[in-house]
Design a protein around this nucleic acid. Structure first.
Lengths: 203, 203
DNA sequence: TTGAATCTTGACTGATTGGTCAGGGCTGCT
DNA sequence: AGCAGCCCTGACCAATCAGTCAAGATTCAA
């Protein structure tokens, strides 16, 4: 649907360098806070060279977001209606927490976008994301109706999973400063969230 | 400790106008995304007039943050060591959720700051906030040791309260878009969080 | 080796931004 | 009314920013 994928290995290498540097800068400074000079310096390229590979600042940002959104749906997509409700929900929590641990910059990029009112991903949220959430909310409601899990509002349940798992990435700076420098902020997070959700959804 | 409070009623009125407009703009766009022209237009004043009341952009931002930080500590400060553990913790959750409902812009201003690595409030977090959290974590640990609540890591417990309550303010745009325009995003939140934390901390 | 395509850059531009300043207008006290 | 001090503004400046361009350097296939 977009421009054809890059052909030469120089293009592949440099586009990767640029996107990685841009992810650093955008996730830490927000869209308007980031500058092309920062991104170029961080990528080890000149600014005009940046603009040889991407038409403009927004295209870099859009590329990052688009790549991210696919990955964003995956964990919830994997929640299987015919699986064991407890295992499915706890599995979803673990996959989301895993994403926060492995891709904290992507999480912060997303958080920045939502904080600003989600101007660039409104279509995604109202479209694909809403459809998937509605679908899985119905699944969860079904489990509750069958008495296989506690009777909880499925939307609040899903939002609470997002809140808790993404918090470990998005507010990492705060957690690190409160806990002290030496502490791994993810230490104990998985077993804590396991306990929390196991107790919450137990019928 | 700062410049003496404004004297005339014109000063009081215009400083209030500016800070209110600035809170709108900073919380929605972040520090670098906000412009003095936007703030001035939103406040109904000229840009030079803005700078008659505040020395520069950063002073406006710092004033907002400083005012906010006092209010930020209050709910946790009210958690009483000699109260009933369940009532105290659920009360803290309710006070935090109430703050998200009443002051969503302040919550987003704070979230923006943390996302950027908390450069301007590092002192507050490492100082007053850390001290208060350490103090209350000890209280919670004591309750757990006495078997009055479940044996949970108190830091994860506190962070999960922050995550869940602030999520309703910070990610409101996403929730609104997923739920559909008509829905009040706070609908059902209090009883859901009541249930969640009651089940979590039950001994 | 050679030449065409690809890659890279210094020097630039126009727009936006935070901030200044000199002077004029307004307010409230006597 | 008159005036001192507070309030307000248009016009301006220097810095920063996204983006352009012409020309040189590099790569790679033949």
């Amino acid at each position: 649907m977009n421009a054809p994928r890059p052909r030469t290995r120089i293009q592949r290498r440099n586009r990767k360098l640029i996107l990685d540097a841009a992810l650093d800068v955008f996730s830490a400074q927000g869209y308007r806070g980031a500058t092309l000079d920062q991104i170029a310096a961080s990528a080890g390229l000149s600014k005009p060279n940046l603009l040889y590979y991407f038409d403009n600042k927004e295209e870099i940002h859009r590329t990052l977001l688009t790549d991210l959104l696919d990955a964003w749906l995956a964990p919830l997509h994997d929640l299987a209606p015919d699986g064991d409700p407890q295992a499915e929900i706890l599995g979803y929590v673990r996959r989301k927490l895993q994403m926060s641990r492995e891709y904290p910059r992507e999480s912060r990029l997303f958080a920045n976008e939502i904080l600003q009112g989600a101007p660039r991903i409104e279509g995604f949220i109202r479209g694909d994301l809403k459809a998937l959430v509605d679908e899985k909310a119905a699944v969860i409601r079904g489990w509750a109706a069958q008495g296989r899990i506690a009777d909880l509002d499925p939307y609040h349940l899903i939002f609470s999973i997002w809140a808790l798992t993404q918090h470990y990435a998005d507010f990492e700076a705060q957690m690190r400063m409160v806990r002290g420098e030496g502490v791994d902020t993810f230490e104990g997070a998985e077993s804590y969230l396991d306990t929390l959700f196991a107790r919450l959804i137990a019928p």
